[in-house]
Design a protein around this nucleic acid. Structure first.
Length: 153
RNA sequence: AAGAUAUCACGGCCUGUCGCUACGACACGAAAGUCGUCGUAGAGGAAAGUCCGGACAACGCAGAGCGCCGCACCACCUAACGGGUGGGCUCCCGGUGAGCAAUCUAAGGGAGACAGAAAGUGUCACAGAAACUAUACCGUCCCUACUAAGUGUAGGGAUAAGGGUGAAAACGCGGGGUAAGAGCCCACGGUGCUCGUCGGUGACGACGACACGGAUAAACCUUGCGGGUUGAAAUGCCAUGUACAUUCCGGCUGAUCUUCGGGUCAGAAGGCUUGCUCGGCCAAGGUCGUAAGACCGCCGGAAGGGGUAGGCAGCUCAGAUAAAUGACAGGCAGGAGCUUCGGCUCCUCACAGAAUCCGGCUUACAGUGAUUUUUAAAAU
RNA sequence: GGCCCUGUAGUUCAAUGGAUAGAAUAGAAGUUUCCUAAACUUUAGAUAUGGGUUCGAUCCCCGUCGGGGCUA
């Protein structure tokens, strides 16, 4: 009985929060935090490049236990940006652009459990417009890559 | 009115929308909990460098001696400090004034790891005669021999006043004195872990007496004071998981009590602590065998190997753990540029982001305000 | 977060507090060769930086900057 209820709850959860995309939140659940998962993504995952970012990702179809959330993690190399202020600034720009534009991904891809590890590769600190442009490009590329596969399964 | 230096203070403010982190209340739910709702709080003067000092924690409760490290004028502040405040002394700049000169010195400014070189050892390159219980190269002077003599040559002696070398050369300078000279004597100065009197809490200062040949302790060292060691990746707990496995080395002794099950005391090998020593602490045997020894087990160390590398506390009225402070819009204030002096346009900027917490230090810094010192120009 | 080490030519290393900081290699020029290589000759090139101690610092001391290592 309660399993059925839980399924309904999770379905409602997904429907409200992501498909309809009523609010542009970026909470703790959407962040990739476990170091085990990060190592998996880094070693086993596929990799690619899209202008300011290098990305690793791993994906599997969603199940009742694993809700279909896109978990992300941003990384800025310390070698290129030595000051903590610059690294903080870039990370905040990344998070902000992802928060406002993640609906591009959720419009096409649903029920896929995907972990993404993004590394910022750039020489200068970008402004928000260029960062948003790069993030849109990345999300479109990712959703194109995952969309048909998710549809088949 | 402008620039520079130093010190101190500040390091934009307000409103709205979306969003993040923590906590609390409310709503729903049996509970776990929630696309929940609302409220409160949310990064600096250096948060930095990690250069000092603490709080705090752990370590076979840390005792003594040696070693090692740090500090080093005095007083006060401080939980403590290598920090701060004030004072003393020395040196440098400055130059009023005194003096024949050497030299001393007022105002003002700057610097100083500023105990001891008269406890000992070492070093002082090159140059120079000589660089340290000192030295005679050129000189100066005396005596003797040769020479008729001046002078010259040779030998012996006295001498640190003059020359040249050097970073540093017999305390400086004037006079006396002398064969020539020398603090040998005198005056004026200089120096001193010296002695006495006076002043000062003290460092020290003034006066008098006495004595006068270097530098280096950020060379070893000596003296005084301080420091047990390791640092939140400390430490405690929970979860997951494996191997009570393998190899090598060393040890398992003695006395005593006994209800014969065992207990008590001492000790070896080895190990533990702060580098060493003393001291202190830990420490299991049994079977077979006449014995030597063998086997099993245990203890300690080493090698290689296996497993987990997650969470909670530590940790805070900011408080995370792949780590929160952001984006957009408007206004005020400030700055820059243009100007027809009405205004218009642009910007919110420098250094820089908490990770247990405090007290300092050092370094970085757009701009604003205050104070001090100083510079050049113009006007009177 | 904490602890520690280190900085010398373009590179790898030397140098007891005292000469113009030395060697190898790389660079440049020349000799040789028909040309190149090799060999030989010559040459330029550095103490991370700011102070202090000292008569005199690559060396000793302090600050800053950079690089590296260790730490469950």
């Amino acid at each position: 009985m309660w399993i059925y209820r839980f399924c309904i709850q999770t379905f409602i959860f997904i429907a409200y929060k992501f498909i309809l995309s009523g609010k542009n939140t970026y909470s703790k659940e959407e962040r990739l935090k476990s170091s085990i998962r990060i190592n998996q993504v880094y070693t086993q995952g596929e990799q690619g490049f899209c202008h300011p970012f290098k990305y690793y990702f791993i994906h599997q179809p969603s199940s009742p236990e694993v809700s279909g959330i896109l978990k992300t993690c941003f990384s800025i190399p310390k070698r290129k940006f030595k000051k903590a202020v610059d690294r903080n600034r870039i990370k905040r720009l990344c998070k902000e652009s992802f928060r406002l534009n993640k609906s591009i991904y959720y419009q096409t891809c649903q029920n896929i459990d995907c972990d993404v590890y993004l590394i910022f590769i750039g020489k200068d600190i970008p402004d928000y417009a260029s960062m948003e442009k790069g993030m849109k490009n990345f999300l479109e590329k990712l959703s194109k890559h995952l969309g048909p596969a998710g549809g088949k399964e």
